[in-house]
Computed example of a mutant assay.
Amino acid sequence: MTRTVVATAYGGPEVLALQNVELPPPSPEQVLVTVRAAAANPIDYKLYSGAMGDNPAALPLPIGMEISGVVAEAPGRAVGYTGPLQVGDEVIATGIRGSGYADQVLVDAADVGHKPATLSFEEAAGLLLAGATAWHLLMKTEVGSADTVLIHGAGGGVGLMAVQLAVLRGATVIATASSARHDQLRRLGAQPVEYGAGLADRVRQLGRVTAALDLVGTDEALDVSVELVPDRARIATITGFGRAGELGIAALTGAGDGQAIRNAARPELIKLAAAGELKVAVDKVFPLEQAADAHRYLQSGHARGKVVLVP
């Protein structure tokens, strides 16, 4: 038996509860991982809120898509995307179909990579979903060393990854965030700017923007992006889907080609983290039984990095 956090209904964090679940033995294509840390991501609460559908037959709905831990069982010749997997290996796993808030999880071996020794379990749990999303944004907008990229919502999990990856590409980064997060962004190599009235003018004072990444989906972020970036093909959003078509900008998801791009990014992100070139900022750590509190904090918008659960 393993403890697993599930949503018992559709709604707010109050619907989250711990249940005991019997896991089947792993198939030859799977590994059993003892969870050391599980990252909380916005997609987690979007799924149980009902915003993405509310099928009663899916309840109780397991929660969590991103973990780090130790391989407990590896039948057959399990091979992850960083090589063969053996019992005792420290690993990162994504694509676990929403059962990551648990003591143990079954994961397809193809979705498992070896944890960089440079990262703690808490840090490693927050590397791949945010990192792969940021990678996708930068690939789509073709950001390189000749660019000045404007990143809206740079203080969040995806934003902090996007800033670092853009700097590693040699780009100049202008990052919107509240003033409380400006020092953190400066340390990562960005030029921070406060969002709000007059944003476009403040950004112009810092440089000529050639690409923009929208991580917040506000009208301000979208309008300023299209005002400042000459080529709308170099603007991408992961949240502003309602206006993306109207504005002629890219709306990115993890489906189809997007998933292939994000999957291909995983070993590259691990290499960068292993080399100490990519950091994961962990803001708060909650015990598994306080998953609802973790989600209340995540939804408050005050997190300065990843929110993590530990069994």
Score class of each variant (00 low, 15 high):
T2Y: 03
R3F: 05
T4Y: 01
T4I: 05
V5I: 12
V5E: 05
A7D: 10
A7C: 01
T8D: 13
L16G: 04
A17L: 03
L18W: 01
L18M: 15
V21Y: 09
P26M: 00
P28W: 01
P28L: 02
V35Y: 04
A37P: 01
A37R: 02
A39S: 05
I43Y: 03
Y45I: 03
A51I: 09
M52T: 15
D54F: 12
D54G: 13
N55H: 09
A58S: 15
L59R: 03
L59E: 02
P60Y: 06
G64H: 00
G64W: 00
G64C: 04
G64V: 02
S68H: 03
G69T: 01
G69Y: 05
V71H: 08
A74E: 10
G76H: 02
A78E: 01
V79C: 04
L85S: 00
L85G: 05
Q86A: 14
G88D: 12
V91I: 08
V91S: 04
T94G: 08
S99P: 15
A102L: 06
Q104G: 09
A110E: 12
V112R: 02
K115V: 08
P116G: 08
F121M: 11
E122S: 09
A125E: 06
G126S: 06
L128E: 06
A134I: 04
W135F: 11
M139S: 12
V143G: 12
D147E: 10
T148W: 06
V149F: 04
G155I: 07
G156Q: 08
G156H: 07
G159D: 02
M161W: 04
Q164C: 07
G170L: 00
A171S: 08
T172Q: 15
T172I: 14
A180R: 09
H182T: 10
Q184M: 15
L188M: 13
L188K: 08
G196C: 05
V209S: 07
A212S: 11
L215K: 06
T218C: 12
A221I: 11
D223K: 14
V226H: 08
V229S: 11
D231V: 08
R232V: 15
A233Q: 12
A236N: 09
G240T: 09
G240P: 09
G242I: 15
R243D: 12
A244I: 09
L247A: 14
A251Y: 06
T253H: 04
T253K: 00
G254W: 00
A255E: 14
G258P: 14
Q259D: 11
A260H: 08
I261S: 14
R266N: 11
P267Y: 00
E268T: 12
A275K: 04
A275M: 11
E277I: 12
K284G: 11
V285K: 00
F286V: 05
L288F: 14
L288G: 14
Q290V: 06
Q290D: 15
A292L: 02
A292I: 05
H295I: 00
H295A: 05
Y297G: 09
S300W: 03
S300M: 04
G301M: 00
A303C: 02
P311D: 07
